[in-house]
Design a protein around this nucleic acid. Structure first.
Lengths: 180, 180
DNA sequence: CACGACAAACTAATGTAGTTAGCTTAAAAT
DNA sequence: ATTTTAAGCTAACTACATTAGTTTGTCGTG
C-alpha cells in the first residue's frame, strides 16, 4: 500500500501528531530513509495527508447531498461531516495541519469543498457574498462541534448526538428567521 | 519568569507544537534538565499550559459578560473568545491538548467555563439540560470559527470580521426563533 | 555557629526521530 | 547491450527528551 494510505491509517489509530516516519516505515516493513523515495520527508508526508484528507472529506459531503435539497441537504452534509471525522479522526486532523495553507493544490481542494457547500445553498438564493459567509458558518459549526467532541472536550454526562442535532437545528433556524 | 509563563509566550510566537523544552530552557538562559525541577517533563509542561490557558480564557469570558445580559452578553463573550485566541493563539492551542482530559484540575477549569456560559444563559430560562446543549453549541461556534480562522482555513478574499458577526447573528436568531 | 534539608542549577549519558549522503540492485526504457 | 530509474539499503549527523548523579547556595533549626 502507498506511503500516504499507510500513514492515513496510522493517523486514525494513533493520532496525527504521532505519525512518525519511523512508525510508517515499520508498518511498511522498510527502513526509514526508503520513505524519502516516496515523500519529501515528514513535512511532505503531512502535506499529502492533508490533501488526501480534504479530498476524501469533500467526497463524503458531496455524497451526502445527493438527492436532497435545502435544509435536508445541509443537515445531511453536517451529519456526513461528523461521520467522516469519527471514522477518520487522524486523517481529519491532517486536513487542519497543511504546512503551507497557500499551497496551490491544498487551496484548490479546499475550494472544492466550498463549492460543494455553495451548491446546496443555491435554493436559498443568497447573494454570492452572503452565501460565502454562510459557508464559513457551516464549516465553523461542523468543525467546532466535531473537533471538540473528538478532543474529549465535552463532558460525558450529556448525549452528544442530541447536542449536535440541536446545534444543526439552531443553525438552520438562524438562517431562516430574519428577526433581529 | 516562571517556566509556564515563558512557555505560554513562546507558544504564542511559534505555535504550541513547536514549544520544546530546549526552546524554553534557552529562553530562560538555563540548561534543559534544569526545567525538570519545575515541571514534569514535556507532558507536565503541556498539562500546566492547558490549565493556565483554560483559566485565562475563562477570565476573559467572565470579564466580557460583566454589565451585559442575554443576547448582548452572549455576543460579547463570543467576541471575547475570538480576541483571546487572536492574542494568545499558542496558549489557546494548549487548551485543546490536555494530555489527559480526565485530569481533575483540567476538568474543574473546563467546568468553570461551562458555568460562566450557563450564567449568561439564565435570562433565557432554559431547562438545565437544554442549557447544556446550548453551551455546547456556543463553544462549537466560537471554537469552530476561531480555530479555522487561526489555521488560515478561510480564504483571504472575504472579511472575516463580517463572517463572524453574521455567524453570531445566526446563532442568536436560531436560539430565539422556534419555527421548524 | 554549625549542620542538615532543600531548591535549583549543572554535566554526562541514553534513546528516539528526522535528515542527508552515498551505495546497491533490479526492472524498465532506449 | 546499455542506460536510466525506482526503490531499497547503511552510515553518520542533528535535535530533542529524559534520567541519573553531582554541585552549590540558602535558610531554618539544633
Amino acid at each position: 500500500m502507498s506511503v500516504v494510505l499507510t500513514a492515513a491509517r496510522l493517523a486514525d489509530e494513533v493520532g496525527f501528531e504521532n505519525v512518525t516516519l519511523a512508525a510508517v516505515a515499520s508498518r511498511l516493513g522498510v527502513r526509514i530513509p526508503s520513505l524519502y523515495n516516496h515523500v519529501k520527508g515528514l513535512p511532505g508526508l503531512r502535506r499529502e495527508l492533508a490533501l488526501y484528507g480534504i479530498r476524501e472529506l469533500n467526497k463524503r459531503l458531496q455524497g451526502a447531498a445527493i438527492g436532497k435539497e435545502s435544509d435536508k441537504a445541509i443537515e445531511s452534509m453536517l451529519y456526513a461531516y461528523r461521520s467522516f471525522v469519527r471514522e477518520r479522526p487522524g486523517l481529519y486532523q491532517a486536513t487542519l495541519h497543511a504546512p503551507d495553507p497557500q499551497d496551490r493544490e491544498v487551496q484548490e481542494a479546499s475550494q472544492a469543498i466550498i463549492e460543494t457547500v455553495l451548491t446546496v445553498l443555491e435554493p436559498f438564493h443568497f447573494k454570492y457574498e452572503d452565501a460565502l459567509h454562510v459557508v464559513r458558518g457551516f464549516r465553523s459549526v461542523a468543525h467546532g462541534f466535531v473537533s471538540l467532541e473528538a478532543a474529549g472536550g465535552f463532558g460525558l454526562s450529556l448525549d452528544t448526538d442530541e447536542s449536535y442535532r440541536r446545534l444543526i437545528s439552531v443553525f438552520l433556524r438562524g438562517l431562516h428567521c430574519s428577526s433581529l
